[in-house]
Design a protein around this nucleic acid. Structure first.
Length: 132
DNA sequence: CTTCTCACA
DNA sequence: TGTGAGGA
C-alpha cells in the first residue's frame, strides 16, 4: 500500500495534460502554485511536472472555489486537513501500541496461570483436561 | 509544437 | 484571470 502512494506522488505530467484532466487554464494552474496551493516538481528545462496527487488537489481547489472560497481560505482548509490527518495517524499508532502492550500483558498472565494448571493436573495424575 | 516568465493599448 | 511578447 506504500507502492501505490509512491506512484501517485510521481510527478510526470506536463501542464498541458493537467489542463485537460482538470479543465483549468495554464494561467490558473500556475496561479494556484504561486498561492502555495500546489507544489509541482520542476524537472528538465524548468518545466512543471505534476503527479496524480496534484491532479486530485487541483480538482479539490476547483470545488472549493465553486463554494466561494478564496486562495487564502483554500490554503487554510488544506493545512487544517493536513494537521487533522497527522493527528489521526499519531492516534492510530498510539492506540496500536497500547493494544500490543495489553496483548503482551494478557498473554503473559494467561501463560503463567496456564502453566500452574498444567503442573497441578500432571502431578495429581488426573485425566488431562485443558485449562479452558 | 509546448511551456516559461513577465507585463498590461 | 485573460492575453500577447520574446525565449528556451
Amino acid at each position: 500500500m506504500k507502492e501505490k502512494e509512491l506512484r501517485r506522488s510521481l510527478a510526470v505530467l506536463p501542464i498541458g495534460t493537467v489542463m485537460k484532466l482538470t479543465n483549468l487554464t495554464a494561467r490558473q494552474i500556475r496561479y494556484y502554485e504561486s498561492q502555495d496551493l500546489i507544489k509541482p516538481e520542476r524537472s528538465d528545462g524548468n518545466r512543471r511536472l505534476y503527479s496524480l496527487n496534484d491532479i486530485d488537489r487541483l480538482l479539490e481547489i476547483k470545488d472549493y472555489i465553486d463554494d466561494g472560497l478564496n486562495m487564502a481560505g483554500i490554503r487554510k482548509v488544506f493545512t487544517q486537513k493536513q494537521l487533522e490527518q497527522e493527528q489521526f495517524k499519531e492516534r492510530l499508532n498510539k492506540s496500536l501500541t497500547d493494544d500490543d502492550v495489553r496483548k503482551i500483558l494478557h498473554d503473559e498472565l494467561l501463560r503463567q496461570s496456564g502453566f500452574r494448571q498444567v503442573k497441578l493436573l500432571t502431578n495429581s495424575q488426573t485425566p488431562l483436561q485443558k485449562p479452558f
